[in-house]
Write a protein that binds this DNA or RNA. Structure first.
Lengths: 160, 160
DNA sequence: TATATTTGCGTAACTAGTTACGTAATAAAA
DNA sequence: TTTTATTACGTAACTAGTTACGCAAATATA
């Protein structure tokens, strides 16, 4: 296969994870374009959340997805622009913007779901030969959660 | 742990990989800032390559790292601006820009290496409880390489 | 009740990648 | 030798995330 990132072993592992993630992201966007899905790859999580919960704020979503709120602001802004999300100011707290799916979203959801399901199937196929992957990914998440990559590396620096 | 991305199982797996990758990337940048490393996290691969090979072109690097050449152009541009990389036009082909590490780079490499090694140690620590991770990641890379996420998903769509 | 703190969210400025396009130099083909 | 195709690389415009900052509304405290 002759891959530099693999050759350097642990020094390239993190970059390989990023490379895999990027590759799938761009391939998914390519897929969406091909089949005529007028949405971005990361939006489907917001559709999922709003469909399940009915109404949520930016802060709610950013907590559920564990990403920064400015990232969510950007996503929602685009989804609103395309008419997939509606906002309504909370009566009891004017800071809170209640988000919900528009009728356009609801009408398109079955179509979206068909494609999302095909993607999920792809994910299942991909890790079919990797029976420990999900469990070991979870381990990584847990460890990173307990102590950050930065703090771990600072500790490792002192050991030398 | 109560994590939405984990709850939805395969529908959230790709996003979890991205989340992990992002988290480590930003944590590494934070680390660099803390210890006074005046470089970006992704540069270390270029340092590795140029140190090993002496002189390379943008195209060489993009092939080795398997990323687009415009991405490399951006990285090299910044590295040049900071004085870490020098360019020299190839005598026999004026299109080719031969890149090499500057004296500043060479002088700092031992310092850099100390921190990169600490990071590698962190990676090793992290996957110490995930004995199959590297092998299964490789499997994923191979499968994606054989048939893209897009093509796999198109096939899965037809099956329904 | 007046003041201080927290919360929600919006924006700015940054890095990191992509695809699409253009241009000049080299190589290949007519 | 002239034309055509390929290669190297630079730029533009886009998405996707981050941190840092600001401001107004709500809440807690003095």
């Amino acid at each position: 296969m002759n891959d530099f990132l693999s050759e350097i072993e642990y020094a390239g592992l993190i970059s390989r994870i990023k490379r895999l993630s990027d590759e799938i992201l761009y391939s998914t966007r390519d897929y969406y374009k091909t089949v005529g899905l007028d949405i971005e790859p990361n939006w489907h999580l917001v559709f999922y959340l709003l469909e399940r919960n009915g109404s949520m704020t930016i802060t709610d979503i950013s907590q559920e997805l564990r990403m920064s709120h400015p990232a969510c602001v950007k996503i929602i802004k685009k989804m609103k622009k395309k008419g997939y999300v509606l906002t309504k100011t909370d009566d009891s707290d004017s800071r809170r913007q209640l988000l919900q799916l528009s009728d356009k979203s609801k009408a398109q959801l079955p179509f979206f779901r068909k494609h999302w399901d095909a993607g999920i199937k792809t994910t299942e196929d991909l890790i079919a030969d990797s029976p420990h992957f999900v469990e070991e990914l979870k381990q990584l998440e847990l460890k990173i959660d307990q102590k950050s990559y930065k703090d771990r590396t600072l500790d490792n620096l002192e050991l030398e």
